[in-house]
Simulated scan of single mutants.
Amino acid sequence: MCNLYSNTIPATAMRQLFDVAVERDRLGNAVPLPAIYPKHLAPVVRKGDEGKRELVPLSWGFRTTKKSKKTGAIIQPGAWNNARDDKVRSNGLWKQSFEERRCLVPASSFCEAQGRNPATYHWFALKGDEDRPPFAFAGLWQNSRYQGEEGPEEVVTYTVITTTANELVKPIHPQRMPVILKPQDYEQWMDGNADDAFELLEPFNSNEMQIVRSGEGEKSDPAGRLP
């Protein structure tokens, strides 16, 4: 389960990596994001109204109405930041987005916690010539409509798909890890049919990944450097 990741990729590099024309970059003054949590805004690559890719800031986590178990009153909405690969074709929260609104979620690294009180945080990245080569999670997006504390609300959101943990992640998080897509698969994910896209939902090769940082309380870097 992924609840924390980073994206410190410059906007110019994201446009090049994900084949987005400069006029379709909607990020504005994008800044490095060393720690992205559920309900935070972060860059997403999706297909716009004309079917062309665009870079947009969306909020992490599909929203749904949430009620207090004690009082039944509407409280802050739930944020579904992960979608299981084995549920995306059957679960009503994910199904239509999987068929019609797939996206790429640019990232530099992601974090998984191990243990409690205190937890140890492990940051995973890809191997490569760079310190932390950029990559993309397989994602979905939607316009979430729900009941908030003050009445009906809506926000454009995204979620990250997870799959079975590979051999590197498994000792830290035994069950799940985010789906990381290879660049040659971006087009199939964005433009292929549901069957084509589903074929890509598998663990990333552990030999091509590394743990780049571990420690208690290592959830972000106070100096602003990449986790």
Rank of each mutant, 00 (worst) to 15 (best):
Q210I: 02
P34V: 07
L181Y: 09
Y186K: 05
E208I: 01
R213Y: 12
A165L: 02
R15G: 09
P203L: 00
E149C: 08
R24W: 00
G51M: 10
W94D: 02
Q210K: 15
E199F: 02
A165M: 00
E149K: 13
S144R: 06
Q147W: 10
Y146H: 05
K52P: 09
N82Q: 04
F204N: 02
I180Y: 04
D25F: 01
T120P: 00
G215E: 11
N29C: 13
T12P: 02
Q210H: 08
A165Y: 01
D19Q: 14
F98Q: 01
L181R: 01
P57E: 08
K87R: 09
R132P: 03
K66S: 10
W189Y: 07
S97K: 00
P222N: 13
R225K: 15
W123R: 03
S109E: 06
T157L: 00
E100S: 13
N29P: 04
L226H: 06
P106E: 08
L126Y: 05
K47L: 15
A73S: 13
A30I: 10
D49S: 12
Q142H: 08
Q188S: 14
F62M: 04
K87P: 02
N7Y: 00
N207R: 06
P227R: 04
S68R: 03
E154F: 12
V88Y: 02
A197P: 04
N193V: 10
W189I: 13
R225M: 13
K219L: 15
W123G: 03
R213L: 15
V169D: 03
A194K: 01
T71S: 14
F18R: 03
L41D: 14
M14G: 10
Y158G: 03
G92L: 06
Q16D: 15
P227V: 12
Q184R: 14
L168I: 03
V105M: 03
N3M: 10
R26S: 11
R63W: 13
L4H: 10
F198Y: 15
K52T: 04
T12N: 12
S206L: 03
K47P: 05
T164G: 03
Y186E: 11
K70E: 15
T157D: 05
P10S: 11
K87V: 01
E216R: 10
Q76W: 13
L181S: 06
T12M: 09
G92F: 06
K39R: 15
E202I: 12
T65R: 10
H173P: 00
V169Y: 00
V88G: 06
W80A: 04
R225S: 14
Y186C: 09
S6M: 10
C103V: 07
P174R: 04
A197K: 02
A30F: 13
E218P: 00
S214G: 05
P32G: 08
S68K: 07
H173M: 06
S6F: 05
N193H: 13
D195S: 14
R84N: 08
L41S: 14
G78A: 13
T8E: 12
R101S: 12
P152G: 08
W80V: 09
E208D: 12
S6W: 07
D196I: 12
E54K: 08
Y121I: 11
P222T: 12
G192F: 03
K70M: 05
R102V: 02
A197V: 09
P203D: 04
E50T: 07
D85E: 08
W94T: 01
W141I: 06
T65K: 11
T12C: 05
A136G: 08
